[in-house]
């Protein structure tokens, strides 16, 4: 089992290593623009709960970026599946569906963790030093686990790469902007807050922000993320099984 998981993971890591010089700039551009536009230009004189807007924004960006980068594994899977037909090579090997999902989820998580490091470095350039303690990394890890599991499941369901892009536009992009990344949830009406609390990204933003700013961490949000991740992971295993026509 471990052998198979590592095989799937190793393949993704080899590809990522080969593309790393292109990936790091691509991971930096959007967060850098958000930091300049919202953090530096617009939020200069804004303070939220005793923290500068930049300090409020960076943990939100980490939640958002770890989500989008973990979810990006879906595109990699789809390219491998629809264009290069590499999924067949893995399906024909003695690799269980569980091992395949675990390997891909691990790769998505690694990608998300690396992109988090990029944002932390960008934050340093803007003079923001966050507390990167255990609870912070646990929050990033669980968030990445949730969205890479979702990515693997959805990658098996879609029929083309175009469908994948559509899913990103309708699922991930709204979550990225509404899940408490750029502004406090209290600014929403109550019904809106209730809806937003269903989204895993909201819990991720809460735990990452609280842990990195030294506030009290909401343990229930870690629990929600872990349970959601487990459910998405299980669904992904079923989707891989069903991907055999």
């Amino acid at each position: 089992m471990i052998h198979s998981i590592l095989a799937v993971y190793y393949r993704e890591m080899l590809i990522m290593r080969r593309r790393l010089t292109r990936l790091i700039p691509s991971w930096s551009v959007s967060p850098l623009l958000y930091l300049i536009a919202f953090g530096y230009a617009m939020g200069k004189h804004v303070a939220i709960d005793g923290h500068s807007y930049m300090e409020f924004l960076i943990p939100g960006l980490i939640a958002m970026n770890s989500m989008t980068q973990a979810f990006a594994i879906a595109s990699e899977i789809n390219i491998a599946r629809f264009y290069w037909h590499i999924f067949e090579e893995i399906q024909a090997a003695p690799v269980s569906d569980f091992a395949y999902v675990a390997g891909e989820v691990l790769a998505g998580t690694t990608r998300a963790l690396l992109s988090t490091c990029v944002i932390l470095i960008l934050g340093l350039l803007f003079g923001v030093v966050l507390s990167c303690n255990f609870m912070f990394w646990l929050g990033v890890l669980l968030n990445s686990f949730v969205f890479s599991s979702l990515a693997v499941g959805l990658a098996m369901v879609v029929k083309s790469h175009g469908d994948q892009v559509l899913l990103t536009s309708f699922v991930i992009t709204p979550m990225a902007f509404l899940g408490g990344t750029f502004f406090p949830l209290e600014n929403f009406p109550v019904w809106g807050q209730n809806f937003i609390h269903i989204l895993p990204i909201t819990h991720a933003a809460k735990v990452i922000r609280a842990s990195s700013l030294g506030n009290v961490v909401p343990l229930s949000s870690y629990f929600v993320l872990a349970i959601t991740g487990f459910i998405f992971f299980s669904i992904a295993v079923v989707c891989v099984k069903r991907a055999k026509d």
Partner: peptide, 20 residues
């Protein structure tokens, strides 16, 4: 169905890993 961005050796290695 080869990994185009990887080398010949890497493609063979991945297959070997998949087959333990």
């Amino acid at each position: 169905n080869l990994d185009q961005e990887l080398s010949v050796y890497e493609n063979m290695t991945i297959h070997g890993l998949l087959f333990r």
